[in-house]
């Protein structure tokens, strides 16, 4: 996984709550067997009209937000389906960090696995950052994971909380499966003890 350390870039304001994963990447684009290439379908229903032309009023279709690396939204971002394609599509578009008052659980896990940093900040702070973002091309935000701060264009640093385990994994870009496989003896022991205690547990047999 690609590590996340610090990022300075354009932030795009998406003033909506409950942005669900069907909006982030509609189901018809989930037919891929790859992880990459989904960026062009990001927010497809909001970004393009029925003929496939860009909607001028959608934020990511406007300069400088076409180059956004940070997205700022409202409550419960990423709710709905478990599709990791939502994180892949954001990443493929170039978004490395989403800032919102709250996030849905599965989306948060998926983001962490893909080096996409989610920063939860109170609504009023998100509103203030959106106002910053609306100042245009020079309004770049810095997100510094090591220091756990978002630095506004004014230079003011806003602190955020993050789970220490998640932070460490993001900073180092760790391969979680490799780490777990190193604990295989514990898994073996668990399985053996379980089999001895509850031999009735059935296997899948078709």
């Amino acid at each position: 996984m690609r590590p996340f350390t610090t990022l300075t870039g354009v932030a795009a304001p998406l003033r909506a709550a409950n942005v669900d994963t069907d909006q982030i990447i509609p189901a018809r684009f989930l037919k891929t067997v790859e992880r990459t290439g989904l960026g062009r379908h990001l927010f497809a229903g909001l970004r393009y009209d029925a003929e496939g032309a860009e909607r001028r009023d959608f934020v990511l279709n406007r300069e400088p937000y076409r180059r956004a690396e940070v997205l700022i939204a409202l409550e419960n971002f990423g709710c709905g389906s478990s599709r990791e394609h939502a994180a892949w599509a954001l990443d493929d578009f170039g978004i490395r960090c989403v800032i919102a008052p709250s996030f849905a659980d599965i989306f948060a896990t998926n983001s962490a696995k893909n080096g996409l940093l989610l920063v939860a900040l109170p609504r009023a702070t998100c509103e203030a950052l959106m106002a910053d973002a609306e100042m245009g091309a020079n309004a770049r935000l810095t997100v510094d994971l090591e220091r756990q701060v978002v630095v506004r264009p004014s230079g003011e640093a806003v602190a955020f909380d993050i789970d220490p385990g998640a932070k460490a994994r993001l900073l180092e870009g760790l391969d979680e499966i490799g780490e777990t496989l190193a604990r295989a003896p514990a898994i073996d022991r668990f399985e053996a003890a379980r089999a001895a205690r509850e031999p009735w547990r059935p296997a899948i047999r078709l």
Partner: peptide, 20 residues
């Protein structure tokens, strides 16, 4: 509970998940 594809891979490979 539902999981994403990275976790699908984790379960396939280890039969476990890291959970809080």
């Amino acid at each position: 509970f539902g999981v994403g594809t990275s976790e699908v891979e984790h379960v396939l490979s280890t039969q476990t998940l890291v959970q809080a």
